[in-house]
Each structure stands twice: as C-alpha cells, then as structure tokens.
C-alpha cells in the first residue's frame, strides 16, 4: 500500500506565545510534530506493518522542518519529502498549503493519506479535507479507529462525542483524532536508521507551481494576545461559608447562574 502522512512542524504545547513586530515570536521556542500528526504517522506505520507497502511523510515548511521529518522517520516511516517554500513564499494560507500538497500528490497514486484533524497553531482543520477534494478522493475526519480490507475501510469517527462507524471507499484520506493510537517514541536504533533514510527536498518549481498559483485568499491584518487574565479571588473562611459566598458571587456579581 502506498501511504502518505502529512505532518506539520508546530510550537511545543508547553510554549508561551508572544508577539513581536506583528508576528508570533519564534526565538528560542521548542518545536514538535503537531500532536495530531503523530497519531497520523503512527497509524500509517501500523497500516504498513499489517498490509505492506511504504510510508512517506510529507511537510511544507522551511529547512528547520527536517528535524520533525527525521523524527517521523525514526518512528518508522520509510521516506520523507520536504517542500521548502522559504525562498518562494512570505505567506501561505490553507488554500495554498492544500494546493501544494495536492499538486505534489496528484500523480503518486496514494492509497491512503493520513493527516492531523487540526494543527494546534493555525487551528483551521482545513488542509486534510481540502487536499482530498483537490485529489477527488474520499475522506473521513476525526477518526479514532481504522481497519482496511481491500478497497474498503471501516472507520470510527468521533463526532462531538458520539462515534460513527463508517464504511469508506479507498483511496481515502483520514484525519486523526486523539485516541486513534498511542504514538511510539523513536527508539535509538530507529534514530540511527532514520539518518540514512531518504529525505527529498523540493521547491515549488519542482512540482510545477508558481507563486501566483498559491497566492493567499485570506489576508492576515493583525495578530494579538488575549488580555492577560487577572488572578481572581481565592475565598477564605469556613468551607461552608466559602461555598455560600461563591454561589452568591456567581449569581449577583458574575451573573452566570
């Protein structure tokens, strides 16, 4: 089976966010594979181990995203592709990201594409379904279970807490929800092997795209931080009185009950 996993390099979830010159400051921040994409990579490896084939991890980003690709290779992916847009593009929206990925994938005959259901930085959740639509293949989002049998997959999908069992035709793109699996940590031998695995680096030119083809549709006009939350009031006194006071405050001051 020809399997692709889409991974995005994102800020570590521990990072505090600050804004500098109208952009999110990246100095000194730690970066990780988007947590949902780890589930995607893990599932890709499991499907390959069961059905045979090859897992390619794909990212759009800068040179720095090589690190996350190597991590995915160390987990067990076979090959990696970095589409480096650093020299070509200053900005990229979801339309552009999906266009690039679909353009790369269009002649690859992928049987299965796995993505995260959402990137914890951009947070749009658009890229997976957009790619599927551009490739004209089936997709199912926020999945927690995947079983493949020939040209059909049985998928369990999390829908705001309910689970739907779906029979889906292959080729298929799925987006991972938490609970799909427990992503493995790269092992030491895995890390050693990853260094020798192929990592191909491409630019827009190489996939016959022009900057104009991916010009942003959505213009970002500002980035700002939410107002700092003031530490509130920790109540004091006898516990019963505290609870009385709390309920009163919620009713009369905060007016939420």
């Amino acid at each position: 089976m020809n399997i692709y996993a889409l991974v995005k390099r994102t800020f570590d979830t521990e990072e505090k966010i600050s804004v500098q010159n109208g952009e999110i400051a990246e100095d000194g921040a730690e970066f990780i594979i988007n947590p949902y994409d780890e589930y995607a990579v893990e599932e890709a490896i499991r499907v390959r181990d069961e059905h045979g084939g090859e897992v390619t991890v794909l990212t759009i980003g800068s040179e720095e995203a090589e690190k996350q690709l190597r991590t995915a290779l160390a987990m067990g992916a076979d090959k990696a592709v970095l589409i480096n847009t650093e020299d070509d593009l200053d900005e990229l929206d979801e339309f552009g990201a999906a266009t690039i990925i679909a353009e790369y994938l269009k002649d690859k005959d992928a049987d299965l594409i796995l993505a995260g259901n959402v990137a914890i930085d951009g947070g749009s959740g658009q890229v997976g379904p957009r790619v599927a639509e551009l490739l004209d293949i089936n997709y199912v989002t926020t999945i927690t279970e995947l079983k493949i049998d020939g040209d059909k997959a049985t998928v369990i999908r999390d829908v705001e807490g309910d689970s739907e069992t779906i029979e889906a035709q292959m080729p298929l793109l799925v987006t991972a929800q938490q609970g799909l699996n427990d992503p493995r940590y790269p092992s030491l031998p895995g890390i050693m092997k990853a260094k020798k695995k192929p990592l191909e680096e491409l630019e827009l030119d190489d996939i016959d795209l022009d900057e104009d083809d991916v010009e942003v549709k959505v213009e970002r006009v500002d980035i700002f931080l939410p107002p700092e939350k003031q530490a509130g009031r920790v109540l004091e006194g006898d516990l019963q009185d505290q609870v009385k006071e709390l309920v009163q405050l919620l009713r009369t001051e905060a007016k939420v009950i």
């Binding site: 929206d93 339309f95 658009q126 551009l134 549709k217 959505v218």
Partner: peptide
C-alpha cells in the same frame, strides 16, 4: 464551526477555489 461544519466547509471551499476563515 461544528463537527459537520469543520468537515464540510473545506470541501466546499476547495470546490469553489475560495478562501475560508475557520472558527
């Protein structure tokens, strides 16, 4: 921006070749 809206909107946006502002 519900389970349904999140699933469907990117497909429609791709069909329309349009931008989409989510959430």
């Amino acid at each position: 921006h519900t389970a349904l809206g999140k699933d469907l909107s990117p497909k429609i946006a791709a069909k329309l070749q349009s931008g989409l502002v989510s959430d």
